[in-house]
Structure formats: structure tokens, C-alpha cells
């Protein structure tokens, strides 16, 4: 899906969690970028049909890359990764969920 342009220096590598699972990333990446790198792009289910959705525009316009950090819904493409960041899926509010 995505590969790094170059091998990042080891002091730039960090790790965060998405839905409890560790994800490797490089400083400077957005949360959405890092998720893409780890081939995790179906990051939420839509409230209307429950379909899988992932990041789309990477510039903060489309609202498809929504995740939660500290209980707040945010755009994963607008949040720089930090070491140890805890990211979770937005609650699935689709009627068929649960």
C-alpha cells in the first residue's frame, strides 16, 4: 500500500497504539499517515450503513479519517504522531453495531 521514501534515522522512530495495537511511526508523520504505513486504512465504520471507511483527502477536508484521542473525535490526518499516543476508533454508532 505505502512504503517509506527512505529509512528514517532510529531516533526519529516511535510507537503509538491504535485500538490497543502498537503501530510504528516516524516523527513528523500524521496519525493517518502512520496508519497507512501499517496497512491499517479501514479505520472506522460509517454511522449510516456501517461500511468501512479510511482516510481520503489527507488535508482535513473530508472527515473520513476520524479517530478518537482522549475521548475527542479528531481528524487523524491533522494530528502529528507522538510516542505513546493512544488512538482509538470512533464508537460505531451504526444501528446494526453492538
Amino acid at each position: 500500500m505505502f512504503k517509506p521514501l527512505e529509512t528514517p534515522p532510529s531516533d526519529e522512530q516511535l510507537s503509538f497504539t491504535f485500538d490497543g495495537k502498537p503501530v510504528a511511526a516516524t516523527r513528523g508523520m500524521s496519525v493517518a499517515g502512520a496508519l497507512f504505513q501499517s496497512s491499517t486504512d479501514a479505520i472506522r465504520n460509517t454511522p449510516v450503513s456501517g461500511s468501512a471507511r479510511g482516510p481520503f483527502c489527507m488535508m482535513g477536508a473530508c472527515y473520513d479519517c476520524l479517530v478518537q484521542i482522549d475521548g475527542v473525535t479528531v481528524q487523524a490526518c491533522q494530528i502529528p504522531v507522538t510516542d505513546g499516543l493512544v488512538v482509538s476508533r470512533v464508537p460505531n454508532t451504526h444501528k446494526g453495531a453492538e
Binding site: F2, P4, G28, A52, P55, C57
Partner: peptide
């Protein structure tokens, strides 16, 4: 076009610029 794995061309370019990632 709503499926994961479909992104804009601009998004792919943004990822080269700021995430250092290349779409394969």
C-alpha cells in the same frame, strides 16, 4: 470512491511531502 484504499491524488502527494510515504 468511499472504499478504504481510494484516496485523492493530492492526498498521495501530501503523504510524500509530509509523511515520507509513497503509494505503491
Amino acid at each position: 470512491w468511499t472504499l478504504p484504499g481510494v484516496i485523492t491524488a493530492g492526498a498521495a502527494q501530501i503523504m510524500m511531502k509530509s509523511d515520507g510515504l509513497v503509494a505503491q
